[in-house]
Design a protein around this nucleic acid. Structure first.
Lengths: 227, 227
DNA sequence: AAAAATTTTTAGACAAGTCTAAAAATAAAA
DNA sequence: TTTTATTTTTAGACTTGTCTAAAAATTTTT
C-alpha cells in the first residue's frame, strides 16, 4: 500500500519483466530481460538485484525473476499510465497512432496518483488505447476481449479490427494505408495454401495480405459469409 | 539550431540560472544557484563546469556564469513547457492553481518539439499561465504586461489581479479564500502608515491585507476612485 | 557421463550527479 | 593595508546505471 520509490530505469525493467512474464509462465530470465531492455546481461543482473532488494521481484540466481505483488502492481500502473497518455496524444492532441509511443514512454514516468486519475476522467475512462490494448483501471483490473489473429481466422469470416501485436511505426502506417484502423471491417475471402497469404475485402476493395500481417492483426469475429 | 542533449538536472540548473539572471544584471553567482537548487556550492560548481563545456553558459572562476544564447533559448523553452503544462492541468484536468507546480516540474522535461507545440494549439495558444506568468511562444517571445505590486498601488486606486510573485501553495490558497483569483477586482481603500497593511475592497467586502501580501500580488490599474 | 555450448554472474571501470571537509580566492572590515 | 569573513573551488567519496572481459553455473549435445 505504501508508495515504493522507483527510478525510471527500475520502472522500465519492471514493465519489461511484466511483459515477458505474460508470455512465459510467470518467470523472466536475465537474458530475455537484457534483450528487451537493450542492455547487457551484466547490467540486467545488477538491476535484478536492486529490484530484489526493493522486494519488487523474487530473484533466484541463474533462474531469473518473478514479480512480487507490489512489483506487478507497479508494472500495471505503469502500463495504465502509458496507455492513457497515448489516448490523450491521439484523441486530444491529434497525433497518429504510430507517433505516440516515444512520448508515452516519457510521460508514463511522471509521478502522482491524482494526475493519472484526473487524466483518466478527462479522457472519459477509456478501456482501450489507440492500438487496441486494454487499459487497466485504477485498481489494476483490465478487460479482456475475445479476439483472434487474422492468420487463424476461418476463410469466409468477417472481422472487426481490434488491435495489433506489432506496434512498429512501419506496420501501423501500412495499416493506415490499407484503411485498417481499429474498428475497420475486414472479410477473409481466401487463404493461399502455399505461403498463407490472404485475399481480403476491406471497404469493398480486395487486397492481398501476407501471413506476417495476419500474425500481427487482431480481429473480433462478426459473422460468417458464404465463400 | 541543432538540438543540444541535456539531462533533467542540467535543465533545472539552466532554469534556475535564467531566473537569477533576470533579477540581477545577467550574471548568476555559484552560491545563489546552489541555494536555488537546494544543493551545495560544490555541486553547483561541478554543474557549472559541465554546462560550460556544453556551451550553455559562460563560466568564469569565482565570477559565476552567464547564459549563452543557446542556454537562454533552452531555459526559455523549458519555461514555456512548464507553463503550458500548468495551463493544461488547471484548464483541462481541473486542478487548483496551487496543485500544479510539482507535476509541471516533471512534465517540462518530456522531450519532443511537436508535443509541446500541439499542446499549445490544443490549449488555444494561451499567453499566460494560471499564476499570471507569461508563456513564451515557440520562438521564445513573451508578452510583457503593465502590472504593479499592490504594495505600491496608490490609495484609492482599483486594480485587477494579474499575477503573483510568491507561488507557494499557502499563499495561493489564502488568495483563493479571499476571492483573489486572477482577474479579480480589488480596491485599495487605505494604507496603514505604521505597518503598511492595507484596507481593501474585494467584491463589495472589506478586508485588511498585510504588506507581505501586497509585495506578492500584481495588479493592473484600472481606475481612480475618490477616497 | 563427459564435452561443448550457452547463460548468468562477478570483477573492475566509467559518467552523472550528489555529498562533506578542507583549501584557495575574493570581498568586507578594522 | 592587514585581518577577518565570506564565497568558491578542489579533493575524495558515494549511488545509480551502464559497460567489457573473464569466471562460474547451467543446459545441451554427443
Amino acid at each position: 500500500m505504501d508508495a515504493i520509490l522507483t527510478t525510471s530505469a527500475e520502472e522500465n525493467y519492471l514493465k519489461a519483466i511484466f511483459k515477458i512474464a505474460e508470455k512465459t509462465d510467470g518467470a523472466a530470465l536475465t537474458n530475455a530481460i537484457a534483450m528487451a531492455m537493450g542492455t547487457s546481461a551484466a547490467s540486467a543482473t545488477d538491476m535484478l538485484k536492486r529490484l530484489s532488494e526493493k522486494q519488487l521481484v523474487v530473484y533466484e540466481k541463474y533462474r531469473g525473476v518473478q514479480l512480487t505483488e507490489s512489483g506487478a502492481r507497479l508494472a500495471t500502473a505503469l502500463i495504465r499510465k502509458h496507455r492513457l497518455w497515448e489516448v490523450f496524444l491521439v484523441e486530444k492532441l491529434g497525433f497518429a497512432w504510430d507517433e505516440v509511443h516515444e512520448f508515452a514512454e516519457q510521460l508514463e514516468h511522471v509521478q502522482g496518483e491524482s494526475l493519472i486519475n484526473r487524466l483518466d476522467d478527462f479522457l472519459g475512462q477509456p478501456r482501450f488505447d489507440p492500438h487496441g490494448d486494454p487499459i487497466p483501471d485504477a485498481q489494476g483490473r483490465w478487460l479482456r476481449r475475445p479476439q483472434i489473429r487474422l492468420a487463424i481466422l476461418p476463410v469466409g469470416q468477417t472481422g472487426i479490427v481490434t488491435g495489433v501485436d506489432d506496434h512498429s511505426a512501419a506496420f501501423l502506417q501500412y495499416l493506415d494505408q490499407l484503411g485498417l484502423q481499429i474498428g475497420a471491417e475486414l472479410q477473409l475471402i481466401e487463404r493461399n495454401p502455399y505461403d498463407h497469404s490472404m485475399r481480403v475485402g476491406i471497404a469493398g476493395m480486395e487486397t492481398v495480405l501476407s501471413e506476417k500481417v495476419g500474425q500481427n492483426l487482431f480481429l473480433r469475429e462478426v459473422g460468417q459469409n458464404e465463400v
